[in-house]
Design a protein around this nucleic acid. Structure first.
Lengths: 205, 205
DNA sequence: TGCATTATTGAACAATGTTCATTTATATTT
DNA sequence: AAATATAAATGAACATTGTTCAATAATGCA
């Protein structure tokens, strides 16, 4: 069965080729400008071929969104050695913001755009595993903070959601161009300045 | 010059008719499904006429986005009589969340979608007045809180941005379908539960 | 070599935003 | 009132998109 294996491998390779090309175009030109035709053209295949490997454009966006979570997860691994959960929490926030600022299109795909979510069949009760995993990582750290006597009187899950939302909100507003009106005296970026305020609050808890 | 006045009024009326119809379709079907053709059809005019009154689809979305801010601003007026700035701040957050949950499409238009922002000519240094006004209202309340001895050691503007982001982040994640994985024991909605955690923090500041 | 399976193709379709020469309606002038 | 000038409205036509699918080409097997 050597041929079957090889063909399976070739299929995987072409699928990866499509995805890599799609990601490249997507980061360069954005979601809307990344057309199936432009993807096909960039890898010298026809539009039809793309549709052999992906049900539709949303399926491609969904895979890219999954890759984004893998990338972010990879970055977070560096923080595993930080013993102090509070320190780790703070560092996670910084890294999250850094990732969002440096990869705004990927971030949108991961946390804002509806398209990559639409492959989840609600009838089948399919869940957003990437998000749940990422949330769980954050929640674990928050729970360790609570175990270390921080956040007294708080509920882990809603608190985790609140912290996530705080950081996400800043990134999201910035990426959606809603922070232009917020002028600052400081040389600091508004998102960084906002995060500093959050850190001041953390110290009081 | 009675005729000129009347014609100007008629033009305004038709413009309003287009906008009203657009908003209706938009709230019913979403942005993408609200096509120029469907708008034209619903008011028994041709597509060309719509383009006489609006440069492009983004211009329509921008006007609806402005209407959204007017609507939200109207809701906030009810809070003017709340003397205690901290109470007012808390009530503003609740109202903001209520508005976002009840008008998710409008909310997206106001705070997430890029389209309505694209009418702002960056070469002309045009600013996002709706957002700036809304931000200023919130900032004023935060400053009054500071004057009432809350938020010691905080900078008004970044703190305001942080609070806004916190609430926006929760609404935004929910509207973008990113809260499905976050299960709760409580009967509470996750966004409300998250806001409760924020209130607990406020009490410690 | 001939056949069967698999992979690839790209023309064709429907839907969309947008334009603009043409037509219709309205207002002004003679 | 008729003729003319201005303004408003039209909708066919274009370019671009996602998507489909019968036809073609390539590959594996007997």
């Amino acid at each position: 069965m050597g041929t079957a294996d090889r063909k399976a491998k070739e299929k995987e390779q072409l699928k990866s080729l499509i995805l890599d090309s799609a990601r490249k175009l997507f980061v360069e030109k954005g979601v809307e400008q990344t057309t199936i035709r432009s993807i096909a053209k960039s890898i010298d295949y026809s539009v039809g071929t793309v549709y052999v490997y992906f049900r539709d454009k949303n399926a491609i966006l969904n895979e890219l969104h999954t890759q984004g979570f893998a990338q972010l997860g990879g970055l977070f691994k560096v923080l595993a050695h930080v013993e102090n959960p509070m320190e780790r929490l703070i560092a996670m926030g910084r890294l999250y913001i850094k990732f969002a600022m440096e990869n705004p299109d990927m971030y949108e795909l991961m946390f804002t755009l509806k398209a990559p979510m639409e492959v989840l069949d609600q009838a089948k009760n399919e869940e957003w595993n990437e998000g749940i995993s990422a949330f769980t990582v954050l929640k674990t750290t928050v729970e360790q903070c609570i175990a270390a006597n921080h956040f007294k009187g708080h509920e882990p899950e809603p608190l985790t959601f609140m912290i996530w939302s705080l950081v996400h909100g800043m990134c999201s507003l910035h990426i959606s161009d809603r922070t232009n009106g917020v002028h600052l005296n400081h040389a600091n970026h508004i998102v960084d300045a906002g995060y500093e305020e959050f850190l001041k609050i953390l110290k009081k808890l």
